Structure formats: C-alpha cells, structure tokens
Amino acid sequence: MERMRAARLHLPDRSLVVEEVDRPVPGPGEVLVKVEAAGVCLSDVHLIDGTLSPMYLEGDAVTLGHEVAGTVAATGPDVTGWSPGARVVLQAGEERRGRTYTRGVDYDGGWAEYALATASTLVALPDTLSFEQAAIIPDAVSTPWAAVTATGDVRPAEAVGVWGAGGLGAHAVQLLRAVGAYPVVAVDPAPAARERALEFGADLALDPADPRFGEKVLGASGGVGLAAAFDFAGVPPVREQALTVLAPKGRLVLVGLTDQPLTVTDGTLFSYFQQRILGHYGSESHHVQQLVRLAEGGRLDFSRSITDVLPLEEAASAVRRMETKEGDPVRLILRP
C-alpha cells in the first residue's frame, strides 16, 4: 500500500497532525485526485476548536479540507468520462442515503497529497482558471452565490446589505455587484474589513457602531431600506440591527451560523411590513458549475481572494492565521 501525507484532525483531543497514511484506492464510481490546492476555511478552525463537530463521521479522525482542486490520478471501476491528468475541482460534499455529507468533515477531505471523490462530485476545470482560485469556489464563493441568487433571490437595482466582510462576506459583495444589486452596503466593525469590502465593490462600508448608521443606510437606499440583508457574521446583534433597516417585504438571509436565539424585537411591525427571515446553508452542485463557467468567461476574478499559499506542513500555522486574522486573510491555500 502506497503512503501519503495528510493533515488529520484527531477528535478526542482536537489535535491537528500532519502524518503519513495509506493512499486511498478508488473503488467503483470513485476517482483518486492528486491535490494541487486546498482552501483553509473558518469552518476548519471551528472543527479544531470544537465549535463544530462531524455528524456522520465513522471513526475519531478525519483529513480536513472541503475546498479542493487538482488532477485526476486514477479512476475506479465503472467510472467513465474522466481520464488521468484531467483538471478538476471537487464539490464540498455529497448526498448519501438522504443526508448531506461534507468533505473534510464527515469523510476525508483535501488537506492531503491525494483525495478520494465520488465521480459525480467532480467538476471539470478549464486551463484558464488556476488551481488556487478554483479550490475556493466550493463554499467560499458558492455559499454566498447560492445565498444571493437562490435564497435571497436578489434582483438588479435592489438595495442590499452585507454584515461581516470576511471570506464569505467579501465574496458576497463581489457577487452582489455582479448580479446588479445597488447600492451594496457592507457592515463590519473592523476598518480593514470595510476597506476590503470597498475594494470588492461595495458602494458604502459602515461601522455597525456608527451613531448615524440607520440614517446612512436609509440615505443610500433612497429612504426605503434594504430589500435584502445578509448576515455572514452569525451574531445575534447583527440580525437585530439588520431588521431595523429592512424595507417593507424585505428579507433577512441568515448565512453565518450561531446557536444563539433569534429575536424579533417588534413582531407587529415585522408582520405589518411582511418581512421574511430565511435560513441558508451551503450551495448545490450547479452553483459551483455556474461559478466555474463565469470565471472561465472572465465575468468573475478570484485572484485577489488568495492571500497566501502555504505547504501542507504549515496547516496549523494557516489555521492560526485564520483564527487570529493575522494579515487579514480572505483565503489561505495549502499546497501538498
């Protein structure tokens, strides 16, 4: 059995260790992918610190990494349409027995030299799109894309707000601009995050503690309020603030995760204005395919999202940088 390096999370003590493991062998319907780039996400940080835990993992250790791009190394029996050397990006998860399994959480992911994938989770990658940019499309880009185009159903010229301009939120700003939303208001307490939001296309970037916050949002939206507000922070005060500047029939889309209660301070006004609160999680396979196509056609560029590329051995350092926001990263990439 051939061996490979992998960054493994051992759940009993939440330790992350780069170690040698057996290289997987593709079975029926499976493809072995040589990993060229794998994204580091805050979800990985939360898996390590214990905030998140796998729901369907068999065993007590898992190779992290749900944002993965590479080349086909080998195919299992009955796999057609894929040949060694083909450039691919992997969906961040798949459906099994009516449940959603997440790569790098419920089964081994891409923080390794090789990753095993069901053939149906592969998306062809054009030569014009780098592995680094492609790797972050599942989740970092596809999650806000699905939130904007599906759950939020944003239309051209609608006023929108984005709370939290980190990795997902910054991409949401870029994508909202791409679909024609106007104005796009970004909200974040960190000056560096607000500056980044403006670079990604926000028309206005506000500190949530600004005493004239509501006045400025109403001014930017022509006195009507926001047609859609997106919470990428997962913080209860964010949701309460967003509701105060929501337009009649506006929708609040909850993307950031929290186990804290959701409160509507004035339920009468909420009902009178026929507003809506919508939960959102992840994306579907066609969202990744759409984004690859748009990037191939030059409609979207994710090059500024790649803050740094690190070797696999520095996985722990990458996690620390994401957790402490050292260097204000959008996305860090591991290269085995």
Rank of each mutant, 00 (worst) to 15 (best):
G93I: 07
G93D: 02
E95Y: 04
R97M: 03
R97T: 03
G98D: 10
G98T: 06
G98F: 04
R99N: 09
T100D: 00
T100R: 05
T100K: 00
Y101A: 00
T102S: 09
R103Q: 12
G104C: 10
G104Y: 06
G104Q: 08
G104N: 05
Y107L: 13
D108C: 01
G109D: 06
G110V: 09
G110H: 07
W111N: 10
W111H: 13
E113C: 02
Y114M: 06
Y114T: 04
Y114G: 02
Y114N: 02
A117F: 11
T118K: 04
A119H: 08
A119P: 02
T121Q: 09
L122P: 13
L122R: 11
L125Y: 04
L125V: 09
L125M: 09
P126G: 08
D127S: 14
F131C: 08
F131P: 04
F131S: 04
F131Q: 04
E132M: 01
E132Q: 15
E132W: 02
A135D: 07
I136C: 11
I136R: 02
I137V: 15
I137A: 01
I137D: 02
I137H: 03
P138G: 07
P138T: 11
D139C: 15
A140D: 06
A140L: 13
V141H: 06
V141S: 04
